[in-house]
Design a protein around this nucleic acid. Sequence first.
RNA 1: GGGCGGGUAGCUCAGUGGUAGAGCGCUGGCCUUACACGCUGGUGGCCGCAGGUUCGAAUCCUGUCCCGCCUACCA
Length: 921
Amino acid sequence: MSEDASETELEKAYDPRTVESRWYPRWLEMGVFHAADKSDKPAFCISIPPPNVTGSLHCGHALYTIQDIYTRQARMAGCNALWLPGTDHAGIATQVVVERLLKREGTDRHALGRAKFLERVWQWKAESGGRIDNQFKVLGFSLDWERYRFTMDPQMSRAVREAFVRLYEEGLIYRAERLINWSVGSQTVLSDLEVESEEEDGEIFEFAYKIAGTEEEIVVATTRPETMLGDTAVAVHPDDERYKHLLGKELVHPFVDRRFPVIADGILVDPKFGTGAVKVTPAHDFNDFATGKRHDLPMVSIMNKDGTLNANAGEFVGMERFAARKAVKKRLDELGLARGTKRHRLAVPRCQRTNTVVEPMLSEQWYVKTEPLAKPAIEAVQTGKTVIVPEEWTKTYMHWMTNIQDWCISRQLWWGHQIPAWYCKACSKTTVSRDDVSVCAHCGSKEVEQDQDVLDTWFSSGLWPFATLGWPEKTEALATFYPTTIMETGFDILFFWVARMMMMGIHFVGDVPFKKVLLHGMVTDEKGDKMSKVKGNVIDPLDVVYGIELEKLVEKNRDGGATEAALKNVRNTFPQGIPAYGADALRWTLATYPPQQRKIPLSIKRVEGGRFLCNKLWNAVRFALPSITGAALDVAPASLADRWILSRLSTTAAAVWKALDEFRLDEATTALYRFFWNELCDWYLELVKPVLAGPDGPAKAAAKATLAKAIEGTLRLMHPIIPFVTEELWQKVPRAADAPASVSLAAFPKAEDYPSDPGAEREMAALQAAISAVRSIRSEHEVHPGASVHVRLVAGDAVLGLLEAQAEAVRTLAKVEPLEILASGAERPSGFATSSAGEIEVQVLLKGLVDSAHEAARIERELKRLDKDLTAMRKQLSQPNFTDKAPPEVVAEARARLVELETARGRLEAGRGLVAELAAG
RNA sequence: GGGCGGGUAGCUCAGUGGUAGAGCGCUGGCCUUACACGCUGGUGGCCGCAGGUUCGAAUCCUGUCCCGCCUACCA
């Protein structure tokens, strides 16, 4: 629409593109998203789960809409609401991106050196990082950009050092040599959580070790034959009779000059599995490592960090690990020691980032001692200081926390927070310090060198909720907003992140980092399959917002690595490409899914539904605007319809509050949709049309005021979910004299803002039933919608007055003329079909309009349906067990229902006469 | 192996002790001047299977079968 269109004229169809682009800048100008450090209002805070600085918007991020809904609602509800934005430096991911760039330039980070490389990363970050921030703006996220944080900012880095040093001083951080998960692909150690095991088809290879000085042998099995080069024992079960005589005997290694014993170990060995003898490789297997410790076995490391074999591997030195695997098998075979292979399913550990197979290796790393930190974190959830929603995740949290392993926090990367530990070349002692060290704290030597490694990204992320608020400074923001109100994130990072924030927050600030943890499911495609570039089923939120042509979409998928089959699928799923649905449509749609479901199967069809809703809203306002512009709002509701719609609005406001409180956004959207579409539009608007078209007077003034209030209230209630269209429309409708400049700052409607009127709701239900009954008969008989029909409504005294008062509504909404309203007992005249709407009998003149066969069919069908219900109801009421034991109100209800069914049946029976009458013509 | 979640209308899912719901789809009739991104009427489900508790169960309990996810050291 053009900017200078008159106040009361809107385009016929809602176009999100023009509306959505204009509001975000204005909100920023108005400063509506900025929260004060100090305020009289209650504090509300969500710190955003920081997306990777390398990232760009995907559907998972689009779910941040949930956080925006809560933040916007809190803001409107009068809170000092802060949604704090930021990004994460994402150690491995970012380094991989920049290294790829360097490779294209024909160089690498080692050629560049650490300092130059880091310069390069910062440069990359300045150019390409933070793209996602702008994408968040497209979605309308009400983030307080003045408080933007990046995990590598000086202030955040300071927090990281402070945390590290304190934990070190408290003995909660230590350095140790252990078996670790080594990612050959990214050349760093990984924490347990970053290793993903997937079952794959593999094989199990059996071979024999000879007993020294005899021809006797012992057969062992392995899925990684090359590790035999590091074997330092073979273990059998202590009670295994087969091998008892071999215990303590020496085995001869066929390739390297080493003899090692047969040992007894009841923990490692299951005598029923395989041969009952297990080769032990303490330096390359976690179980074997433990076994090695128990038996004090030598630890022979056979592998270099790049995955090639080292000097301990004898003739295989220098070979790549998988080539070595083949070679070892071949040589064993040549020596006559191979004993065959079997197919075998096994769990292969892979690196999350590079998908390369992870190798257990011996290495010295930094660890956080987690048990003392976990204990209070467990208690906080047990005592309800932090509540996890949905509740069933509490168990998972507890289970993980109670079985927690020490956390390996060093990473062999350059991009990240370098570990603040300095090693002295003179006295070889370690100095850990908040400030850079140039002199050894122990001997005063200047020969100190900082640890080359950086910290796990999750270490800094664990400090996020309080470091973003200024910690370790005792800032006002920290005092105001900590503990934060809600942490809203995917259940998949409950351990990665939520658990660690809990541990760190409690330890460093002395209180939990958030009062509530809301965990949502994973966005998938509509069939429930994980979105993946290869499958070509990825929905880019921006494509949904702006739209994309089919060919461009296909091209984009092809660039993403989609297979031909996947591209075909893209063409099938989006034959016309994707239309511009707008951010509101996407937001609405995401909010209609129960967030706590495991899967959120996003369907483009449903997004279309979201756009329909926005369009409907637009058009409802378009219709109402000429009537309500300038209307006096302080007029009380007058008609039944007026009282009813405001009562429904009151109920709806209550439902929305309740739904949000229970983390049931689906229920919130359902309540809003029902109210707006099925009540406000379908009934109220239709009911007030004649009034608004009629002469001026008190009734019209009341209708105008009510319509204005209902629409204005709806816009405010919907605003947290669909901020753009509601803001645009809210600016045009009449509102309170003291209303703020933006609906974002207007009060969020409460149930008590509108008069509840149960009487009006009851009466309206009766009226609706009567009108529906007439419509139903009309439609059954294919009476043309334009044709009026003669209707008689027969009812008892209780509803007679209502019908008389609402005659106009019946006439209009059911296209009735003439309309007779009669007291009970009025016989069905010839030519009228009959039906029931609760207590009301509805008689519709069909003579001359339809043929008898139609009516006969309708009656028989209705009778069949009624009889089914009647039989069930009679049966239930005939059982003394029911009438005696069920609560009286339930029995009474059943009796009333029976009467109603019988009455309806009687009327229908009588209606059979109509068939003959119609036939007679 | 352990844990968790799910199996309700063609599809995607709500419902959690008292007459089976929504959206989309399908379908009949309508361009009724807010909206065809619409209006209006309808079709469609023995609520995975088997027991049990109860006057009454999709809803609670037990068992069982499928599907998914997480987790675990079977060489």
